[in-house]
């Protein structure tokens, strides 16, 4: 069966190549990635449930913080009633508060552990953008829309991934910091003031959340396009690669 590995399992690997198992994602990264997924989902949902309360009597007091508009012109205030209703958000404020102030700990601990692991293990070298990452990211995006030929296979992550994954870690840190500024605006008022005050901190917290939603959307689309071999790597840790490609493990050893 000459074309066995051309099945769905490894359709991103050229035929007749000698294969090997690449240790792609360390166990710790896989755990923290999958813990973060439902926890971030709960944080977003509970945050939106809490935030809904302020639009409870929007007919009297239209919301100023989550307004999209310029000067006195308002395009929309987030979110329209139909969106609230469709997502079954209204009247779950106390569930929202209860979940938010419990899962914030898991989100924070998991996120800090993730950054610590990246630092200690050296995995950050695969993740942090390099000098050429921006140019590379533009090429990746162009080739995605068939405006440019496919790029050569990257190491662990290409430039676009390096920028996106590093940004999302920074966004996580931003959510923790803006969240603390909203949670303790009196006791931690220096932080709140530094962020532009209470209402600005809320604005920042909200738009970081919208940023997570946008990241999630793009991420899932990219994972679906990249295929099973890549997705499985985040669960089993292994990816099937041609033996001719440089090995991540060899590179990992070179750091020590």
């Amino acid at each position: 069966m000459p074309d066995d590995h051309e099945s769905d399992e490894v359709r991103d690997v050229p035929p007749h190549a000698t294969l090997r198992l690449e240790r792609k994602h360390p166990l710790a990264i896989r755990w923290m990635h999958w813990i973060n997924f439902p926890v971030l989902f709960i944080m977003i949902l509970s945050g939106i449930r809490t935030y809904w309360n302020t639009t409870d009597n929007a007919h009297l007091y239209p919301h100023a913080v989550y307004r999209i508009g310029v000067g006195s012109f308002t395009l929309t205030r987030l979110f329209p009633a139909s969106v609230w209703k469709a997502l079954d958000i209204p009247w779950h404020v106390t569930q929202g508060l209860g979940d938010h102030f419990f899962f914030m700990w898991i989100f924070a601990i998991n996120g800090i552990a993730y950054v610590a692991f990246l630092g200690l293990s050296g995995e950050w070298r695969f993740l942090v953008p390099r000098r050429e990452s921006l140019k590379e990211a533009v090429q990746v995006i162009l080739s995605f829309f068939y405006l440019r030929r496919k790029l050569a296979t990257q190491k662990k992550y290409n430039g676009a991934q390096r920028i996106a994954y590093t940004s999302v870690i920074a966004m996580g840190a931003g959510s923790l910091i803006t969240g603390l500024a909203i949670y303790k605006p009196t006791q931690a008022h220096y932080l709140t003031t530094l962020l532009g005050g209470y209402e600005w901190a809320r604005w920042e917290h909200f738009w970081l959340t919208m940023g997570f939603c946008a990241f999630f959307l793009v991420h899932v689309i990219q994972v679906v396009i990249a295929g099973w071999n890549n997705f499985r790597g985040m669960v089993s840790g292994f990816e099937i690669r041609p033996a001719s490609e440089p090995s991540l493990d060899v590179e990992r050893k070179s750091w020590r």
Binding site: M1, S236, F238
Partner: peptide, 20 residues
């Protein structure tokens, strides 16, 4: 090559089953 690759794929499947 195919014989060697089959071993690699079998090992991968074992990891996959366990981890999933």
């Amino acid at each position: 090559i195919d014989a060697e690759n089959a071993k690699v794929l079998a090992a991968s499947r074992k990891h996959t089953r366990r981890s999933f």
